[in-house]
Amino acid sequence: MLKVGVTGGIGSGKTTICKIFESLGIPVYYADLEARRLIQEHPVLVEGYRKLFGEKAFEYGKLNRSHVAKMIFHDPELILKVNALVHPVVREDFFQWSRRQNAPYVIEEAAVLLEGGGNHLLDKIILVSAPENVRIARVVRRDGMSEEQVLKRMKYQWNDDKKRLFCNFEITADDNHLVVPQVLKIHFELLQIWDC
């Protein structure tokens, strides 16, 4: 079974691309969603968050997001520590999850995949790319964030040029190119690789 990573900046359209893979019968692990679950369930992460953000990190057993966000706002370096804490646990969870799947390949979808060095543990990486202005417009519309907030988030992610160096495939999701044919092409290529 191949392990394929799908990555791309915020608002690039990763989730839509993964939904197409899912409809082709490919299991997809949504790392960001699973990370949210693990932060509240996994003992290593719960303990790690308490150390980083204090006792207020959890309220009534749930992550105190506003407290965490405030602390990160005042100390942006904390985000690197959070990544270093969360990524290995999520990766391990992904491997456990993939062992339970029965498909030629599985996908891990993550916004920050290459930044944490996760690409070394995956067989292939797909980059979902879109121009920055398109991505900003999507996130502003989708999450109701301001343009400044989106740009701030982008700052912590690699740009597409840097990501491209580590990726095997690229899907352009700029609203002009059709994405389904691009996904089908990659899907059949991955099936061929798996066959070999």
């Binding site: 839509t16 197409i20 409809s23 519309r141 994405v179």
Partner: peptide
């Protein structure tokens, strides 16, 4: 038929 996305965002 499956559409991508399967929902739209109205604002």
């Amino acid at each position: 038929i499956k559409t991508f996305p399967s929902s739209i965002q109205v604002s």
